[in-house]
């Protein structure tokens, strides 16, 4: 099984474009899994006409207070590290603020009366579906929840189990922007990493941060994909001096074409239509994915 993560730092550089098109290309010959851990706004599935089924809820601890047992001693409210429990003496009540709760269960353990019971709060979901030879796993943060990273980690471990169970040959992971610990986990699980950037000042700046994150990871094959290459006004001098200094020798350029974003915006797999223009770039990415 080969695991390939698609990442890059900045938002909107083309991570999902590369991940969805690569997965589609791989799936023509191999059993391929596509995992979406951009849990704040997962979009990979919009490029495949696929029916997704909610297969799991991701939950975490929430306190349920047994008011008959509670003596209002204030131990839970004094220890809660995120101030999600507040004692209101005048009302003889304890107020629970779900949006501040991290689900650590400290309150459950410190309560001397065992008046706090273990409840469950839904923070996200995992969806799954199949389209032709692609198996799609999507993690989604429930709107209003903050625990994106926990949902990312759960989606990753669920996907790894599934991939082993069903013996997928390729797993492509589409990551969100940024350099969080959830992304780090995906990269450390991967054999290969695709860094997608664009020839802009901000794209290069954010990629530098990503490269520093990669320093701690050993034995990873890395390829850099410069998307929108040729876009007018781009930071080409900066890009070439960055490339000289970054020690990455495997670089692929996806040419800029104003038609591509229009087609992409309609939720289409672009290599199907723009195969000719993009053959070179995607062949190189595909070769990188195949090589041992």
């Amino acid at each position: 099984m080969k695991i390939i993560s698609v990442t890059g730092g900045k938002g909107g550089t083309g991570k999902t474009l590369v991940a969805t098109n690569l997965a589609w290309l791989l799936s023509r010959k191999k059993k391929t899994m596509l995992v979406d851990i951009d849990v704040d706004n997962p979009c990979t599935y919009t490029f495949f006409n696929v029916h997704l089924t909610k297969t799991r809820s991701i939950v975490r601890f929430k306190p349920i207070i047994d008011k008959e047992k509670c003596t209002l001693c204030g131990k839970c409210t004094a220890t809660c590290p995120t101030h999600a429990l507040i004692l209101i003496p005048k009302k003889n009540d304890i107020l629970y603020i779900p949006s501040l709760c991290e689900g650590c269960a400290l309150c459950y353990y410190v309560c001397p009366e065992q008046a706090i019971l273990e409840g469950k709060d839904e923070i996200g979901y995992i969806y799954e579906g199949r389209k032709d030879n692609i198996y799609l796993i999507v993690g989604e943060l429930k709107v209003g929840q903050r625990a994106s990273i926990k949902v990312m980690l759960e989606t990753l471990s669920h996907s790894m189990e599934r991939a082993k169970e069903y013996q997928y040959e390729y797993v492509v992971i589409d990551t969100p922007p940024g350099t969080s610990s959830g992304i780090y986990r995906a990269l450390s699980l991967s054999n290969k990493i695709i860094l997608v950037t664009e020839p802009t000042t901000l794209g290069i700046h954010d990629l530098k941060r990503m490269l520093r994150l990669l320093k701690d990871l050993k034995d990873k094959e890395i390829i850099m994909v410069v998307n929108k290459y040729g876009i007018r006004g781009g930071a080409y001098e900066e890009l070439s001096s960055f490339i000289k200094g970054c020690k990455l020798d495997n670089i692929v350029y996806i040419p800029y074409d104003a038609e591509i974003p229009k087609h992409y915006a309609k939720g289409k797999i672009i290599v199907k239509k723009y195969g000719d223009k993009l053959t070179k770039a995607f062949n190189e990415i595909l070769r990188f994915a195949h090589d041992c």
């Binding site: 704040d40 949006s99 903050r146 994106s148 969100p176 922007p177």
Partner: peptide, 10 residues
């Protein structure tokens, strides 16, 4: 803001 709808955005 950061992109998304999670913790840093809230």
């Amino acid at each position: 803001s950061a992109p998304g709808i999670g913790c840093p955005v809230i």
